[in-house]
């Protein structure tokens, strides 16, 4: 099943037989997939199908939850991130994450962006200034908030907050950006801004996005993976998934017969 869509791309993330259990119940069942570099890969599927859980295994965010057991391998740049010797802190610098609900800190816009560089030991004001401006420009929000850098980030609109969170992630120079339904709480205009931004960002970053919105997956992604009940049902180029899916289940979901 794999590889027919990947012949021309570098593989960034390779997942082998990944299973995840919450206590005794299995949430992911032997998932294997390959995710190409500098593309947008979308995960779709009904609620509770495991797509968000799977996304969170890619930067080990599930470590925060008690009682989780993980089997299998996730290989990013030739290293299995579930190895015992892995430095999770540095892994998360490399694999950034945007959450469903925008979550800026209760600090100023500037301090939000500068948080990542600061914990990495950058103290010089000029360097921080430069990172803040660059990140905000990359996240296409600089022009809107350049005059409010020192106001509380919580005073921004929902869409601005989400782009601020993207800028905050960009400020630590990740290679992969995980987005967990980044636009599900936003209005259509903010959503389209985020989608444009994703198109911009994929020139430099590998983007993996979980979405409930199938139009969004169709519009923004290069590849789409369909999850159902903890299984990866099908993964292919987005146009193929949406026009000519191989599996009946995928077709039923996409055409709105369930989910």
């Amino acid at each position: 099943m794999l590889n027919n869509y990947l012949f021309m791309d570098e593989i960034k993330v390779k997942v082998k037989d990944l299973s995840l259990y919450y206590g005794a119940s299995q949430a992911l069942k032997k998932i294997s997939m390959e995710i190409p570099e500098k593309k947008v890969t979308a995960f779709i599927g009904p609620s509770g199908c495991g797509k968000s859980t799977f996304l969170r295994t890619l930067n080990r965010m599930n470590d925060l939850i008690d009682n989780v057991t993980i089997e299998g391998e996730v290989i990013i740049d030739n290293t299995n991130i579930y190895d015992k010797n892995i430095d999770v802190v540095n892994l998360r610098k490399k694999v950034g994450m945007i959450f469903q609900k925008s979550n800026p800190f209760a600090k100023s816009v500037y301090d939000n962006i500068a948080f990542g560089p600061r914990i990495n030991g950058i103290k010089q004001k000029s360097v921080l200034d430069e990172i803040v401006e660059r990140s905000l420009r990359q996240a296409a929000i600089w022009d809107e908030i350049k005059d409010r850098l020192f106001n509380s980030a919580l005073g921004l609109s929902g869409g601005q907050q989400q782009r601020l969170c993207i800028a905050r992630t960009l400020a630590v120079n990740p290679e992969i950006i995980l987005m967990d339904e980044p636009a599900s709480a936003l209005d259509p205009i903010s959503t389209s801004k985020i989608e444009e931004l994703i198109q911009e960002l994929k020139k430099e970053y590998t983007i993996i996005i979980v979405t409930h919105n199938m139009q969004q997956a169709a519009r923004t992604s290069d590849l789409t993976a369909f999850f159902y009940m903890g299984d990866l049902v099908e993964m292919n180029k987005t146009e193929i998934i949406f026009s000519n899916p191989a599996k009946k289940q995928t077709e039923d979901y996409i055409s709105g017969r369930f989910g």
Partner: peptide, 27 residues
């Protein structure tokens, strides 16, 4: 303190100590 703060901080590559003292405690 909202769990989203902790997640955001860890997601940015902060250690648990950094998250505790620079994010959760000030909030």
């Amino acid at each position: 303190v909202p769990k989203t703060y902790t997640e955001a901080s860890l997601g940015l590559g902060a250690s648990r100590r950094q998250t505790a003292f620079y994010v959760v405690l000030p909030t």
